[in-house]
């Protein structure tokens, strides 16, 4: 299977482990990722906070590049995924947006690719039955809290993915990997997002509530699909509680060789937990 790939800016910086593990997992599953040539930033929350045209034009420019390739587009970052889906939705549903975008980037949404997050890729394209057959080291004994945050699931008419407040799809992937998931209250609560850069204190209190909720539910770690959530949870918490990207755990379960480089990037050391479950790469 070939897919276009949009890493986004965070995956080239603070969240490089998400990029590396996504590429490794896809390679192990026989998926070839073709990075979009000369992709640009999606504009993130600053785009829609300040500029009514740029917040569509920036992500839509990437849809335009992807449309030339005629491949579906994998977007692992939840924030980029949200912006690309929002641009796609606006182009699909609003004539005045198409009109503006024809003028600004010479693109009206033609052949706009399907935009996929990691769970959609695993559930719909790979298939959980096949995924189960690929698991070499089941994550036996590992109990995680699947954390979706906001941007994968809201607004629901834009992302069209799972449930806006009670999503359950990541749980099915974790179970296919041989792990367990807990039921908990904070699965789609906000981590504070980009406020982290200017209001560390607010984000710390939001993040600690999320971690406490995961602990109370009996989880040993939180699993994330968003670089913003991951960085906030991993760097701002005061609980010494491990946080993983789904792709990090999946890479372990797939038995990828030499798959431990990302551990040293984590602020909360996951090694004791992984050692106790004999999951150390």
């Amino acid at each position: 299977m070939n897919l276009s790939y949009y890493p986004g800016c965070s995956l080239q910086g603070s969240s490089s482990e998400y990029d590396i593990t996504t590429r490794a997992v896809c390679a192990a599953l026989g998926i070839e990722l073709m990075e979009l040539e000369d992709w640009i930033c999606c504009g993130a929350s600053s785009g829609h906070s300040l500029d009514e045209v740029l917040h569509i034009a920036l992500p839509a420019q990437n849809l335009k590049i992807a449309a030339e390739k005629d491949l579906d587009l994998l977007v692992p970052c939840a924030a980029c995924y949200n912006r690309l889906k929002a641009a796609r939705h606006a182009l699909e549903t609003r004539e005045e947006v198409r009109d503006k975008m024809r003028d600004v980037i010479d693109y009206d949404g033609r052949k706009s690719p399907a935009v996929l997050n990691m769970i959609e890729l695993l559930q719909e394209r790979v298939g959980l039955d096949r995924l189960r057959t690929e698991i070499k080291i089941p994550l036996k004994g590992l109990k995680v809290a699947c954390y979706y945050g906001c941007l994968l699931v809201r607004p629901p008419d834009v992302t069209c993915f799972d449930h806006p407040e009670h999503p359950q799809s990541m749980e099915t992937v974790v179970e296919a990997m041989g792990g367990e998931s807990v039921r908990w209250s904070h699965t789609a609560e906000c981590c504070g997002g980009s406020l982290s850069l200017v209001h560390g204190g607010i984000v710390r209190s939001l993040v600690d509530r999320i971690i406490e909720s995961a602990q109370e539910a009996g989880a040993q770690a939180v699993v994330s699909l968003c670089p913003l959530c991951f960085e906030n949870l991993d760097m701002r918490q005061t609980k010494k509680f491990p946080v993983f990207y789904l792709t990090e755990l999946l890479g372990l379960a797939l038995g990828i060789k030499d798959f431990g480089h990302w551990i040293k990037k984590h602020f909360q050391d996951p090694s004791p937990l992984m050692d106790s479950l004999r999951l150390t790469p």
């Binding site: 829609h48 997002g193 406020l195």
Partner: peptide, 11 residues
């Protein structure tokens, strides 16, 4: 300016 755009209100 404190709104982070989590969209919980919208849902």
């Amino acid at each position: 300016w404190l709104c982070v755009g989590c969209e919980t209100c919208a849902v």
